[in-house]
Design a protein around this nucleic acid. Structure first.
Lengths: 220, 220
DNA sequence: GCCTGTGAACTCGTTCACAGCC
DNA sequence: GGCTGTGAACGAGTTCACAGGC
């Protein structure tokens, strides 16, 4: 008998665990596509080089999904992971700052399955407003953010503006009611308590590589 | 007297420290642009919400950059950080998989200053080969990777192909001599010991946000 | 026998607190 | 007095190792 726990404490679960659940989901999706029916934490770890104990610990926060002596049912596990991650619902997002990165994300979103839907592409540049993006959305005026967010039930704001505009856009997102923001501008944007901001800073990745190029790559 | 240590052990320094050095550099660059001459770890921490003790500890791996009772000289610190991160040299990179994301990176690279230079945009699709990108590079055949890497002194490989092609491209990069790889395809690519692979997986970020949307945002 | 679920041990990373120096 | 540089204390995160159940 497997069981999904619903009364866990969000504060006691590390963001690292959540990130790994997303990785596990991807692995399990591949196994499902291969027709694998059952998988043990050991097998999962071996295939995707992860740690079996960590997999079990991560799962344990959310329930008991496995069968002792056997392992996990792949299809069942996939649906548990989706449910835990909130992927059984549709999440609507707006992108502010229509450049190449925004276009890349718009195309990329097909890969995210049914869970994420881009419902707005906004920009402050009058020359861009009114343009049609390849994914069939019209570029709208960024000034209309506060009106669009509640109207279209937007939950996630994505910042793809140049660095100088990022903090202002973030503030506008927060005051329009958004509580989860994904920032791609290469600055540390701040928001009030209760707002979750994740930044993806490509400079950090490149500079880390430059460091290891200069000083040598560490063992394993 | 300030002093840059050169004989530190790469294996004893966490990747988290390196990532923070990159953040510190950005902060210090902003202070330099503002004309600030001296900054203490406390002031740096306050402005960019960091931890002062952590800043000092991170610096301490690489030398003694500060003056007791005073703080750090901003311009000096900037140049130390650049040197530590290996940004005082040019690093050449090739991008394999010419889509919107590749275009975004090509434009973005202007922001990374003089340290990174894209010297090749490759793709396997015959329809794309020969096209000119907005940054003035010709799209070349991905099959020519092994020839291009040594010829143009490429150090970093960037994978922006769709997921199914990523592992093959990674293997080709490794056998062409690349030792540092930045992967944007939404799969976990593997390489042999001695090769550093960093993956930027947008799905993980989005799914993390979906989790917190569903279960509530943790207290600070 | 085999594998999960989990307390206990350990490792790694962060923060504290203060000696040493300007 | 103020701030750096750093050992020591603490806390978070990972891995071990085994009891419990198929």
């Amino acid at each position: 008998m497997s069981l999904l726990r619903s009364n866990f404490d969000v504060n006691s679960i590390s963001a690292l665990t959540i990130a790994r659940l997303s990785i596990y989901l991807r692995c399990v999706e591949r196994l499902a596509a291969l027709g694998v029916e059952t998988v043990s934490s050991q097998e999962l770890a071996r295939r995707f080089n992860l740690n079996p104990a960590q997999i079990r610990k991560d799962f344990a926060y959310f329930g008991e999904f496995g069968v002792r002596g056997v392992g996990y049912n792949v299809v069942e596990l996939r649906s548990y992971l989706r449910e835990i991650l909130g992927l059984d619902m549709e999440h609507r997002l707006v992108i502010v700052g229509v450049g190449n990165l925004a276009m890349a994300l718009a195309n990329y979103s097909r890969f995210t399955g049914q869970s994420f839907l881009i419902v707005g592409m906004l920009d402050a540049n009058p020359e861009k407003i009114g343009m049609k993006t390849p994914n069939g959305l019209l570029v709208e005026d960024a000034a209309r953010l506060a009106e669009i967010v509640p109207q279209r039930n937007v939950e996630i704001g994505v910042i793809t503006t140049p660095a100088p505009a990022a903090q202002k856009v973030c503030d506008a997102m927060v005051s329009s009611g958004l509580r989860t923001i994904l920032n791609f501008a290469p600055v540390q944007v701040k928001g009030p308590e209760g707002v979750l901001i994740r930044s993806v800073d490509l400079r950090i990745y490149l500079e880390e590589l430059a460091f290891y190029l200069t000083h040598g790559i560490p063992e394993s």
